[in-house]
């Protein structure tokens, strides 16, 4: 399994995403924002951070990076793509996922261990979880409030496209407690919390996040 991990100027969690891929016995392939090809990877992770300083609006500049044009094209052909935190914001800006991420309702950056419910375990990133399972992973963001119009929300709920939901107190004002969603085809997933920081209980709250990378391993192997 070869998984591309994109680095934009200002990306921070690329090293973590690469480590998570390695923990799942995959090969992490660094992709640079200026690259014009995806180096033959099986899947792509758009990691967290502050791409281009989050100037203008989170993810608004990154979506125009050369490598994102390749990602958009590959996603439309069905390649598994995962956007974490800033990566989710970038995928939303790139219209691979609907809705937008706005400033947390309490206005502060929030870093905490967050319980999530797995609502959809049919995406290539979530098959290792039981539907309804609760996992504990870090959430760390200042602009993690998921917003979309009612029609989009109805669609997401109706089509089972909410992948993760916050359990307990809503940490950032996300509508319907949405923490992560997928596209209509189910290959692109974006979430605000950080599964790549929860792959080893030594350095994270749990290793609950590893399931996402192991799920991908299964998906890629099935395809092969």
């Amino acid at each position: 399994m070869r998984v591309g991990v994109i680095t934009f100027p200002g990306t921070l969690d690329d090293v973590d995403a690469q480590r998570a891929v390695r923990y799942a016995d995959g090969e992490a392939v660094p992709l640079w924002h200026g690259d014009h090809d995806l180096k033959g990877v099986d899947a792509v992770i758009v990691p967290g951070g502050f791409s281009y300083g989050d100037y203008l609006r989170c993810g608004a500049i990154a979506r125009f990076a050369p490598v994102m044009q390749e990602v958009i094209e590959a996603a439309h052909k069905g390649m598994p793509v995962l956007g974490i935190c800033n990566g989710f914001q970038i995928l939303a800006e790139a219209h691979l996922l609907p809705g937008a991420l706005v400033r947390n309702h309490k206005l502060h950056f929030v870093c905490r261990d967050q319980w999530l419910a797995v609502e959809n375990n049919t995406t290539p990133w979530t098959t290792r979880y039981d539907k309804g399972a609760e996992i504990l992973v870090p959430l760390k963001s200042g602009e993690g409030g998921y917003q979309a119009d009612q029609k989009t929300l109805d669609e997401l709920e109706g089509e089972n496209r909410v992948v993760f939901r916050y359990v307990g107190e809503n940490p950032n004002g996300s509508r319907n407690n949405i923490a992560g969603i997928t596209n209509a085809r189910g290959n692109v997933v974006g979430l605000m919390p950080h599964p790549e920081h929860a792959i080893d209980a030594l350095t994270g709250p749990t290793d609950d996040g590893l399931g996402m990378f192991l799920s991908l391993l299964d998906a890629v192997q099935v395809k092969a």
């Binding site: 969690d13 090293v15 973590d16 870090p138 760390k140 920081h197 350095t203």
Partner: peptide
């Protein structure tokens, strides 16, 4: 205070 600080980034925080 501390929940406004990222303590996880880089994956080395024990």
């Amino acid at each position: 205070v501390t929940q406004q600080y990222d303590r996880y980034v880089r994956g080395g925080t024990v």
